[in-house]
Each structure stands twice: as structure tokens, then as C-alpha cells.
Design a protein around this nucleic acid. Structure first.
Lengths: 179, 179
DNA sequence: TCAATTCTGAACAGATCTGTACAGTTACAG
DNA sequence: CTGTAACTGTACAGATCTGTTCAGAATTGA
């Protein structure tokens, strides 16, 4: 096997992220693999997209586990989570842009189950008075992911150094931009 | 003219937002217009996309003008801006998702010129001590648009009432989610 | 060295899309 | 009522993409 299966998935994600309408011929060429090989692994284009989404969700899920969300240390937990999410940029960004994935019920179901541990953590932190309780928990989670997304964009544009991203995202999320 | 030109643009935006790969035949059908008519107004598919983007940028630009950004009233100015940006959701969201527009230099140039007045306003507010000066102005603008984007998503999902959106976005942006 | 698995290039049918052309119909203004 | 302008349906050529098939080449492991 000249190209490992997961390396192939990672490469395909990047190609399709840059050019979502790329044909499988273009994807195969960019990966240095023949179109036939691609079809032997993924029977249809949609199957490839779903596989890409699955692995991206796996990565996000894994990041949230590795962040070791700890009710006793809310800022530290959030810092670890953002720190682990930042490098996933290109892999996960694909999920948000590709519309045809919304038609896959099993994927849509996973979106929520992946968010769940973080949302529950936020809700506990709110009850413990560590986070504002006058905002919906889902909104706080949404804002966190939004901040991570803005950071991805800024990094891709070369405006932001990856090492600075976490502090910027968390500093803004927790304290706001007001004085 | 059975379908007004700008109504046609608005409708086309919605169709293409829901299904970015829709053919011009589908777009025309959804608009109640013949495919031939569509081609008579926009010589190519790309020309249609560019026209859509132009009008979306016009709307954002107009919203920022109408917000009457006033250095003496930072929170009020931001509130007016967000208030006017929220209803633009579907129109502007299209811009962010459609990748083929990145190949149009004149559009890319406008992205920045549209943001400019807001970014300058933020920079002045920072110098006046009304906003945190330890964050880059572009990041604050990016966070504001990110918050508006999260609100659009939540509204589309039915999780958020449009009337509540502005307070949620601004409350989070200015004060953060920490206690 | 040999055998099995995997990859490759080429070709194919079917489908779809774009962009163009044109003749006929509708709608509207004067 | 009449003429102009806009719209419509249809048809076409060219291009591209998907998904399949298959015989041969390359790799790999034993």
C-alpha cells in the first residue's frame, strides 16, 4: 500500500477543502494515486466525503477527550480544549462547508453527540458559578467553536501565529473585548 | 419584467445557499423563470455568482453606514451595527461559503474595503480606552462577525429568536462568558 | 524466485451541465 | 390596436464527471 489509508483521507480533505468541486480525478492526481485506486477504496464520491467527515469528527471527539475537561479547573480545561482544537483547522473546517453532508442522518446525529461533553461541561461550570449563567450553554459552546473558527481563518491568512491562537481565543471568549 | 432584477438576485442567493451545486436550470426553476432568461441577464454562471456577491457586499456596506458608527457611543454603535447585520444572514452567508469567488480579485479587494470602516472604528475605540487595546483590531472585528455568524446559524436552526440575537452577540463579545 | 495482492492506464456508457441559437409567445407602452 | 421588448420552450454541440470493467504492471511477502 503506497499511500496509507489515513494519509489518503487527510490529503483528500485538504484538496477538497481548497476546491470542493474538484473531481475525483483531480483529487486522485493531487494525492499521487490513480483514480481507479480511489474508486476501489470508496465506491462513490459521497462515500469518500462521509469517510472524511467521520475521521474529522473522530479527531474532534478525541481532542475533547484528551482535553480532560475538569470541573475543578474551568479555564485550564477550556485552554486545553482550544489548544487541541486549533491544529484540527483544515480537517474540521471541511465539515462545516460541505453541504451534501447534511443529507447523511448518521453524521448529523454525531454532530450533537460530539458537542455533548463540552456542552455538559459548560452547563456544570455555569451551575458552579464559573461561567455566566445568563447565557444558554449551547451559545457558549457555539461561541467557543466560532472563536476557534475565526482563529483558523486568521492562521490560514497568515495574520495569526498558531502559537498565539489559543490565548487570543480564550482571552476574548472569557473576558470579552470591552474594558 | 415579471421578476425584478434584485428580487431575482435575492432568490438566487437563497437557492444557491441551500444547494451550492444547483445547476442554473434548477435556479431558474426555483425562481419561476426560464433558463434562457437567466442566461440573458448573466452570460455565465460565474457572472451570476459575482453579481450575488456584489449585492451582498453592498448590503453589508450599507448596514455599516446606516449603523452611524459614533466614537462617542461605542456600545450603541456596535449594537446598531449588529442589529443591522443580523437580518443579512442568508445573503451574506453565501459569500463565505462559495469558494469560487476567491478567484475574483475585485471581490477579494472589496472584502477588506467593506470591513475597513468598522476596523477603523474599533481601532479608535481602543485608543480611547473603550475597547481592550491588547487585542488586534482585526481580531475584534473578526470576533464580531464570528458572533453574528454563530447567531445566523442558531436562528436558521430555530434555536435562537432573531429578536434576541443582538443582545446575545453583543453581551458575549463585550463582556465574555466568564464571571 | 514465485505468487498474491495491489495499483495503473485506458476505455466505455450514461448522465449532466454549460453556453448558444432561434422561432414563437406573452406582456406592455404608446 | 400595434409594435417593441422581454420571456419561453426546444434543441444542439461540446465538455465534463461518475462509476465500471479489464488487462497488464508494480509491489510485497514468503
Amino acid at each position: 500500500m503506497s499511500v496509507r489509508h489515513d494519509a489518503l483521507l487527510a490529503g483528500a480533505t485538504e484538496v477538497l477543502l481548497r476546491q470542493p468541486t474538484a473531481s475525483l480525478a483531480e483529487v486522485a492526481a493531487a494525492l499521487g494515486v490513480s483514480r481507479t485506486t480511489l474508486y476501489s477504496r470508496f465506491p462513490t464520491r459521497q462515500a469518500l466525503l462521509v469517510a472524511l467527515a467521520e475521521t474529522a469528527l473522530d479527531l474532534v471527539e478525541k481532542a475533547l477527550v484528551e482535553a480532560r475537561l475538569d470541573d475543578a479547573d474551568v479555564p485550564g480545561s477550556l485552554r486545553r480544549a482550544v489548544d487541541l482544537l486549533i491544529p484540527l483547522g483544515p480537517r474540521a473546517e471541511f465539515l462545516l462547508r460541505e453541504r451534501s453532508l447534511d443529507a447523511e442522518p448518521e453524521l448529523v446525529a454525531r454532530y450533537q453527540s460530539v458537542d455533548a461533553p463540552l456542552e455538559e461541561f459548560v452547563a456544570r461550570a455555569q451551575r458552579a458559578g464559573r461561567l455566566r449563567a445568563d447565557l444558554p450553554a449551547w451559545w457558549i459552546v457555539s461561541s467557543l467553536f466560532g472563536g476557534v473558527g475565526s482563529a483558523w481563518e486568521a492562521i490560514a491568512d497568515g495574520r495569526l501565529a498558531p502559537r498565539d491562537a489559543t490565548a487570543l481565543v480564550l482571552g476574548t471568549l472569557l473576558s470579552g473585548v470591552g474594558t
